[in-house]
Design a protein around this nucleic acid. Structure first.
Lengths: 216, 216, 216, 216
DNA sequence: AGATAATCGAGACGGTACGTCGCGTCTTGGA
DNA sequence: TCCAAGACGCGACGTACCGTCTCGATTATCT
């Protein structure tokens, strides 16, 4: 018995009680991802139910409960998978912010692209749902941040470090905080509908952040 | 002479929220506010139910449905009422950011106070719940922003305008955008648990925002 | 006051806690009767509600609760009033079974008329409703029987007594029981839908009842 | 190969009563029967609620709604089941009226037993409730008659036919009508509380019915 | 190749909450 | 002074999903 058990290399599978991953039906898993994303897009997150996902995926409810712990968990994995697929389709590495030597230009370019992405309805519905869930459920929020948000932010850290090395950003500045000056305003406007977002807006953010509000 | 039947004309049904405000039972309304806030604090927003609020308030469910359209709506009004009470208790005008002539110091003071408030469990639970609801439900989000968020942000606009008049902030800066440089990072860290918040952190934000990231 | 009061011949008004009858709004009363009968005919007794009657009559709910103790009570009075109106419209006394000297013929004629009446939709819905209520609520049932049913049955008792005097019915027969031989079967078929009713059927009942089942 | 979505073909929805009888939980079914009968006996039919039955049976409401269409439906089945159990407990055939050769005596005996049964509180409450429901709801009434009433009446038909063969009842008499001469009066007195019932009363009914009211 | 055991689809189950309807009581404002 | 209008506390309605639990009927690896 023990021999059989050890035969399976436990994958990442942090600490959820996943049964034998090797027996998992991949067809079902994909169908569940598709159904979850489709439903969130069509009827919204609150009206998306596990029963609805199961029915649409042509899957028993237990198959969902066996592998995921909650609706949010399903959606998070589905969304990550969607990103992985998109990345794979795009083929190459986009996991870095370009470095042309002009920090302002590079940041503006990336933020403009981000604005466009935030407006893509395919990404909007699940992103909002996951963010909202994370706000109320701290446990889930930390997972959401760790797997989805922080990796993106790290790219800014890297770019700002390079800028520090090039003398374009003061050395004593903490890049992890610095990036928030332009990323967080955009995030808040989008998430909370506090004001519209646009390319001009993010350009302005970069300028303000780099040169400050005070007279020089 | 014969009995005249009223035409049973349905009111347009679009404007249906409040039947007749004057006949409203104020005791019930207060009990509902108290119950909603208490439950959200005790068991969390998702486990707070309209049924539970009604039971705790000693009120019929219909009394809630008659005056509010959703759980979120109840909580928003309860929270606004809480703020109004607190303001009234404080007695005096606190509806402005102090202006000592030192912009940096004033902003840091206000943000430190905000950090403390965000950690107050009485405010935390309902704030998070309302924010989360507003993220997924745009309609509600706009109401949340208009009644709760924007009035606070306007105070920063006012203070920044004064600073511009005093020559401490560049004249061409848009105060509505400028304030986001230090407010949004704090908001995001708190809302999304992306990183811890502290007085030192908000102090840093103010410094970065005022003087920029680039060398001077 | 007392003078006014005595002006109204107290109807049955057994022992319900009626307030000052003289102040009663007759227009409202009629409207309530009409509404009750119309609703029972249109939507059926179970879906007829006091709120519905009040709304349709253009009357406050309290006006109903002030004068009647239950939905069944309203309907009973409305039905009695309907009968009174019908009797008044017919003008003359029909409160006796004809006595042509031929008992069988007289009974058959009356029962045929009863069959026709039972098929009149105006009478059917409220009659059934009242009967059903009386079956489950003994208190109400006794009132129903006393005011509506027994007076009709008494007519048969009278006619059978006359027949006994004429030697057409055996002297030792109890008329109150005898009448049930042909009345109850019709009542049961109609009430419980156990079988269809017709003129031929009631004719047969009279023959069987008068001459018995056994060979002569 | 791609996930095949089922067409979501709604079953006609007309034939919706029973999902899959084989998966039915028999323990729950019995508990529901017991609870329904007990509640009707204890608090009366109108105060018996589906919610109450479910609670008392330790069952979810949906389990009731899944298998029955109404409170009356539950009670009808519960009552039928009670009869079936009683019959099984009695062990032997009681599905016939005894035939001693003396028709009058046989009928009197059966009717006396019926009188006793009608007074048994265990039977009285549900019987009345079902009868009342059937009076107002024709659909249900027909089911009630077909499953509960008619089978009993058929026993009288059989006995009367035997009596006709033995020359104790006239050949041209319709047994289905004849039986009503003594059964319906009893039914009406009991159902509508028009008059008390007793052994003497039913004896009289049999005599009147067999020999007629007219002089011989 | 067959045995064996986990996963699969389906969906019944005990529950909780939903949002609605109607009860019977109580309050109010206009006639 | 009435009385229509309707808010109120309450309780039940019938529905939707929850998460758990059986059911056969496939799989899919391991003998």
């Amino acid at each position: 018995m023990a021999a059989q058990k050890s035969a399976h290399a436990q994958p990442p599978a942090s600490e959820r009680p996943h049964p034998d991953t090797s027996r998992r039906n991949q067809r079902s898993r994909r169908a569940i991802y598709d159904a979850a994303l489709a439903l969130v897009a069509e009827v919204g997150y609150p009206k998306t139910t596990i029963e609805g996902i199961a029915a649409r995926a042509g899957v028993g409810k237990q198959t969902i409960y066996r592998w995921w712990s909650s609706k949010a968990d399903v959606l998070l994995e589905a969304f990550l998978d969607l990103g992985a697929q998109a990345a794979q389709a795009a083929g190459q590495e986009t996991y870095a912010i370009p470095d042309t030597g002009d920090l302002a230009a590079d940041l503006k370019a990336v933020l403009r692209a981000t604005v466009d992405e935030l407006r893509d309805p395919t990404f909007e519905a699940p992103s909002r749902a996951l963010a909202a869930e994370g706000i109320v459920d701290e446990q889930f929020g930390r997972e959401f941040v760790a797997t989805l948000l922080e990796p993106s932010l790290q790219l800014y850290v890297d770019r700002l470090r390079a800028a520090q090395d090039a003398g374009q950003v003061r050395a004593e500045v903490d890049p992890r905080i610095a990036l928030e000056l332009f990323v967080s305003p955009l995030a808040q406007r989008w998430l909370q509908h506090t004001a519209p977002i646009s390319h001009a807006y993010t350009d302005t953010l970069v300028d303000y952040a780099l040169h400050g509000l005070a007279p020089r």
